[in-house]
Amino acid sequence: MDNAGVQIAFWVLSILTLVAAGGVMVSRNLLHAVLFLIVAFIGVAGFFVLLSAEFIAMAQIVIYVGAIAVLILFAIVLTPQSIRDNSETAMVGPAILLGVALTAVFLFVIHDTTWATDATDPGLSASDLGRALLSTWVLPFEIASVLLTAALVGAIMLVRSETEESEDVPDADA
């Protein structure tokens, strides 16, 4: 971790990620906020590569950038123009105050603690992760698949339920 390239990558990624997250906060149009969010997701994926978690980085790109961001974009596009406003409620002052206070507390704890770290790369690969998921964590792994199925069925039910009773939807190919 003392390689010059790694250090440059770290600082570039930090600035990219935090500026993009700030852009989500300040942009007034919800569509711009989603685009900033995508940049922040890509920055975090870069951090995963830096921390030699290549499989997680790829999963981050595929799931967050490829699925969640597109899902959010669709939700925005499917609702009318009038609700694309990304302004704050009256609670923005207390929220910022809480955020700053929490940052101060966390930063104090992080820099006050003596972490027992080991800078050598553990060299974990995707096959290690796969073996761990199917041995030590096989029960949570199966529960996660049930959770995903339940969530997707629930999401479909939530969106469908009202269209059927209000009007009959014409066939897609009609």
Binding site: N86, E88, T89, A95, I96, L98, G99, F106
Partner: peptide, 11 residues
């Protein structure tokens, strides 16, 4: 904390 502020303050 940026995410927290966004989650708490967005309308």
């Amino acid at each position: 904390c940026l995410g927290l502020v966004i989650a708490l303050s967005k309308r």
